[in-house]
């Protein structure tokens, strides 16, 4: 038992050790790259959407800290099968949660609520949200690398 269980919860440590949906998607139709210049975290995100706007598949690659890796991994497991609008909705809820903008994490975030502890660690908010910003950019197919320092993800 450590003093850090609020941040490094077992589920987070599990996902960082064994990231799900890790790799690239050869038939992706949405893609974006994200970068956190503060710590050098990098993520490359591939998504495959069908013509109804449902996320058929989503994969990520990259290197980063435990929080950014686990956040990306868990995001992919949650978003598979979701509609674009649902994904955007979760992004906003997740963002508000880690920023500490809401007192209690919304129930529909489900297991993503394990990241609620991040709000107590302002220096780590960008780590948790990098994957989500990158996902948002991928949906919009933005060409530029998404940086947490360019105002796009200017938390913390």
């Amino acid at each position: 038992m450590s003093d850090f269980s609020d941040l490094y919860q077992d589920l987070i440590l599990d996902h960082q050790k064994n990231p799900r949906n890790f790799g690239s998607l050869p038939d992706a139709n949405h893609h974006a790259d994200g970068f956190n210049p503060l710590c050098g975290d990098k993520i490359s995100l591939d998504m495959k959407l069908d013509d109804k706007g449902v996320i058929q598949d989503i994969h990520f690659k990259g290197s980063g800290c435990a929080i950014s890796k686990a956040s990306a991994s868990m995001m992919t497991t949650v978003l598979k099968g979701k509609k674009v609008e649902e994904a955007e909705h979760l992004f906003h809820e997740f963002h508000d949660m880690v920023m500490g903008k809401i007192d209690k994490a919304p129930e529909d975030l489900g297991k993503l609520k394990v990241f609620e502890g991040v709000k107590e660690y302002p220096a780590r908010v960008k780590c948790a949200s990098l994957a989500w910003h990158t996902m948002d950019a991928a949906l919009k197919n933005e060409k530029d690398v998404i940086s947490t320092d360019d105002g796009k993800g200017s938390e913390g």
């Binding site: 503060l38 710590c39 050098g40 980063g64 800290c65 435990a66 220096a123």
Partner: peptide, 26 residues
């Protein structure tokens, strides 16, 4: 394999301030 950013956070909570990152020397 532990990322320096995670090291930095855990050290900080124990009062130990270090730098974690590329030190502007990529």
């Amino acid at each position: 394999e532990i990322h320096p950013h995670d090291i930095g956070t855990i050290l900080d909570r124990q009062g130990v301030a270090v730098r974690a990152g590329h030190h502007c020397a990529q």
